[in-house]
Each structure stands twice: as structure tokens, then as C-alpha cells.
Design a protein around this nucleic acid. Structure first.
Length: 482
RNA sequence: GGCGCUAUCGUCUAGGGGACUAGGACGGGGCCCUCUCAAGGCCCAAACACGGGUUCGAAUCCCGUUAGCGCUACCA
């Protein structure tokens, strides 16, 4: 048995859309699961809209997601000669014919037919031209396209995700396969390339279902068996409409910017329209590959739920060694204008905040505050606490900072810090929280953080004490509203 | 309009004729833990679109209706 050969075939006319990324992911997963070959083919035949920049964005996006390819990238534009030869072979075999209708004529025909409330199909007027008429027009240099002569017969296939799908030839059009400038139309180019590249399984979006009967007809006319088709469902926005820019982030680059970790994105995308069965959610790469099958693919379109993506990202971040997010965190800090001493080890800071973060951005924000606590400002809950405690906020803060200031450098560790704060609370007949919370808010601006003793440890003695002491002045307005 | 695809909690899904009092996850609500929060644990609310069949029995099979989506170019 020959190993499967699959391809991801994006057109470089925009960024890498999450829908495209998921199609790529399914192709890749299928290839890795079966030991087959994953081919990347850039469909750049739309010269108007295709750019090398877009190609690069797609390549970068796939790489970021950890989706690799074994062959390519091939560029469809390089196979124009073969496409043309295939079209002419069809013409010679009587399976296609020249059409001299102009765009304007066709638009007019279409307008008339659609006005009468029926679906438009080309009326084959050029197919009825006599050989001498055709020859005459060619001699006169009349531009022509080549149209495929579609037989009136049932065209059906066993779709790997939908089961049997069938179309009637009479519902389809004699579609153009070669433009008047001799360049191939999508359906021909795809079939020609898929045949040439030995593609065995075509895994692509649902929106191609209606192209499939035309492509099957082309395969047969060209003398080849069609591959297995697997049409994967679309990805929708929260309103149930096709995902588009209106919905906010739709490019994988956007999620990279927002601090999503690639493995989490990949895991989330895999589960959008595919399920291994049972309750599996968070899956390492090798397990996903082991479990992936085409019949685990959903028929129904899926809504992209950003909240669940962020939850999943948080799960990944919590489990990720700080080491592995060092680079993205550093990049983000630089973007925020936080100056970091190159020898400073950021890992303990990352470890202390990652469990409370859903994105790399959250991690970086919290690391920044721990690096420079003086940049903290109270958030809403922080302000509420300050108000609620009144003068006790500053008072307790002073008690805590005095005690902490008396600690020797060697005592600045989580255990000693906790013990010290407990002593402050007990000797002043305060609840632990009444001491802890002001410290936490002063250092971070937030009522949420790692345990306060760990926070102090990670911020360090000098920075902690300076910040604690300066906070009442720093926040004069916030601490004494109105 | 024509053709096609789809239909289980708000969302992602499990489910392949009896195991369904329809399971899990996100989100929501509550409790526990705790200096706070996150994580974690426990609990609650929340769905088989509708109508007909087939069958002893249907979320599961068939038909229809409705709704949503896709395609309907010398775009891909």
C-alpha cells in the first residue's frame, strides 16, 4: 500500500487565517499519523492579489504553530505550461471546447437568465460552432477561453467526513478551465497539480464541496482516479457567521501578538471540528498525532470561542517551564519599554506569576511590575481596598515595612518573610490579611498575586522596602480620594 | 432563485437502536482550600430544532419542514 500524500494549498492573498491554519493542521496530523507526506503548495495563480510577503506570513505562521511540511513550498505559478498542456489535451480529446464569448456577453446572458429566476448555466453556443467557424475566429485572432464539456451524469463520491455526496451534471456549468491569456482557472490548476504531485487525500474546507464534482470530472477526463476527499467544516465567529475581520482577531499572527502559546493554539484548533472521542482535551503533540483520524472530524461548522482558547492557553502556561517562555516575555517587556538587566534571571519571576496568567502578555505585565514595583498603580479592586481600610492601609503598611526593613539580607527568603509578617500581625492584633493585602496592593496595585511572602522574595529587599515606604506619597490621590 | 452541506447545553463536544435520569470541557452560579487570586476539589443551572415514519424500543435509522451556512466569476 502506498503512503498517503496530502497537501496544504493556501493562496498568498492575505494573512494566514485560523481556518486555513486548521486545514493545514489536519493535513499535517493526517500525514504524521499515517506516515505519509505533507506537501505545501502556494496557489499564487491570482497574480493581482498574490504577494511574496503574504507567502512569507503563511510560512511563518505554520512554523510558529509547529506545522512542518516534507515537500515544497511549491508555487503553482511555475506549472502554467503543464496546466495549459492539460487544457489543450482535453480540447484535442473533444472533452473541452473553445469559447469566444466575451465577458460582457456572458454577463448579459447571466443577467437575463437570473432575472427569470433560474440558475445560470452557459448555453453552449460556442460548442455548437462548426469547425470552420472556430477556425475562422482563431484566424481572426478572436480571444477565446477553453471550457470543459460537462456530461449530464451523476457525479458522486464518498467523502471521508460527510459520507456520500452527489451532484447531477445538469446542475453544473460548462466551466472555463483556461483563460484567454492561457492561464489556468483554479479547478484545472488544482487537479493538474494534484495529479502531478500524486496527492492521495484532499483535505480542505467545506466551501470546496461544490467544486468537487467539477474536479472529479476533470480527473476522469484526464484519465486519473480522483483522490479521497475530506471536507472539513468551516470556522464561524461568535455570531454564527463566517469568521471575518469584524470578529476581531482572525489571523494566527494576531494570536501570536496576543500572547497565545503555539502549542495551545494548535491544541485548541485541533479540537475545533475534530474530536478524538471521549473526554480528551489537553493533548501533547504525539498523542494528538496518534489519535487523529479523518472520521473523528465533525460535519458541523464550529464557532471560534476565544475565551476557551485563553483558558487552554492558561493551562499550557501553568505547566510550561519558565525557560520556554523567556524569549516571548523578554520581547514583550522590550515592547513595553521595561529595561531589563541582561544578567537578571527572569525565570523565578515568570514562575511566580504564570499560574495566574492566561497569556504571555499577562505574564509580561506581571513580571514588569515585579521588576519595577514603582510602576504599579492601584486597579479598581486595589482602590476599593484602600478606601475600605482607610488610615489602616498606610498604618499597616508602615508596620510591615518597618519589620521587613530590619531583616538581614540572608533572612530575605519565603519562610522568614512569612514568619516576619505573622509576627507583625500577631503583635498588633491584626488578621494576617490586614497586613498582607496592603503589601500586595502597594507592590502590584492589585489584590491578586502569588502569596505575599513569595512576592516579596521575588521583588527583592531593596526594591520592596523602597516601594512600600514610598507608596503613600506615590498614591496620594488614590489613597485619599476626595 | 438553483444546487449542495449541516442541525445535542450559550460555546467546543461525547454518543453508532436499549448502558441516557443524555456524559465531559469552556463560560455562569455556589461551596471548600487560602493572606488574595489563580490552580485544584466538590456541587448547581443549562441541550437532542420541529413534524411524521421504521422499531417492542430512537439523540442514534428514513422522509419532510424549518433554520443556518457554502457555492452559484476568464477569484482561489
Amino acid at each position: 500500500m502506498t503512503l498517503p500524500r496530502v497537501r496544504f494549498a493556501p493562496s498568498p492573498t492575505g494573512y494566514l487565517h485560523v481556518g486555513g491554519a486548521r486545514t493545514a493542521l489536519f493535513n499535517w496530523l493526517f500525514a504524521r499519523h499515517t506516515g505519509g507526506t505533507h506537501i505545501l503548495r502556494i496557489e499564487d495563480t491570482d497574480r493581482e492579489r498574490s504577494t511574496p510577503e503574504h507567502t512569507q506570513v503563511i510560512l511563518d505562521g505554520l512554523t510558529w504553530l509547529g506545522i512542518s511540511w516534507d515537500e515544497g513550498p511549491y508555487f503553482q505559478g511555475e506549472y502554467a505550461a503543464r496546466h495549459q498542456a492539460d487544457a489543450e489535451r482535453l480540447l484535442a480529446d473533444g472533452k473541452a471546447y473553445r469559447c469566444f464569448c466575451t465577458r460582457e456577453e456572458l454577463d448579459a446572458q447571466r443577467g437575463r437568465v437570473e432575472a427569470s429566476g433560474v440558475g445560470f448555466r452557459y448555453d453552449r453556443r460556442c460548442y455548437r460552432l462548426s469547425p470552420s467557424e472556430v477556425a475562422e475566429r482563431i484566424r481572426a485572432g478572436t480571444p477565446s477561453t477553453i471550457r470543459f464539456l460537462l456530461q449530464d451524469e451523476e457525479i458522486a463520491w464518498e467523502d471521508a467526513v460527510h459520507g456520500r455526496i452527489s451532484f447531477q451534471g445538469r446542475d453544473l456549468d460548462d466551466f472555463v478551465i483556461l483563460r484567454s491569456d492561457d492561464s489556468a482557472i483554479y479547478n484545472l490548476a488544482v487537479v493538474s497539480d494534484d495529479i502531478a504531485m500524486g496527492i492521495t487525500h484532499v483535505i480542505r474546507g467545506d466551501d470546496h464541496i461544490s467544486n468537487t464534482p467539477k474536479q472529479i470530472a476533470l480527473y476522469r477526463a484526464l484519465g486519473h482516479e480522483p483522490p479521497v476527499f475530506a471536507h472539513v467544516p468551516m470556522i464561524l465567529g461568535a455570531d454564527g457567521k463566517k469568521l471575518s475581520k469584524r470578529h476581531g482577531a482572525t489571523a494566527v499572527g494576531d494570536y501570536q501578538e496576543q500572547g497565545i502559546y503555539p502549542a495551545a493554539m494548535r491544541n485548541f484548533l485541533a479540537l475545533l471540528g475534530w474530536s478524538p472521542g471521549g473526554d480528551r482535551e489537553i493533548m501533547p503533540e504525539d498523542e494528538m498525532i496518534g489519535l487523529f483520524t479523518l472520521d473523528g472530524i465533525q460535519k458541523k461548522a464550529a464557532v471560534f470561542d476565544t475565551t476557551k482558547l485563553e483558558w487552554m492557553n492558561g493551562q499550557y502556561l501553568s505547566a510550561l517551564p519558565a525557560e520556554e517562555m523567556l524569549e516571548p516575555v523578554r520581547r514583550q517587556l522590550a515592547r513595553m519599554g521595561v529595561v531589563v538587566n541582561p544578567v537578571r534571571d527572569l525565570r523565578p519571576l515568570i514562575d511566580s506569576v504564570k499560574a495566574r496568567s492566561r497569556t504571555i502578555l499577562h505574564v509580561a505585565n506581571q513580571v514588569a511590575v515585579r521588576l519595577e514595583p514603582a510602576r504599579s498603580t492601584p486597579d479598581d479592586k486595589g482602590k476599593a481596598l484602600i478606601q475600605k481600610m482607610g488610615p489602616a492601609f498606610e498604618g499597616n503598611l508602615a508596620l510591615a515595612s518597618a519589620a521587613l526593613a530590619s531583616l538581614k539580607p540572608a533572612q530575605w527568603n519565603a519562610d522568614e518573610l512569612l514568619a516576619t509578617l505573622k509576627v507583625v500581625a500577631e503583635s498588633n492584633k491584626l488578621k494576617l490579611g490586614d497586613v498582607m493585602q496592603p503589601v500586595r496592593v502597594a507592590l502590584t496595585g492589585s489584590t491578586v498575586s502569588e502569596p505575599v511572602n513569595e512576592l516579596l522574595f521575588v521583588v527583592g529587599p531593596d526594591s520592596s522596602i523602597t516601594t512600600l515606604k514610598s507608596t503613600p506619597q506615590r498614591w496620594d490621590g488614590a489613597a485619599n480620594p476626595k
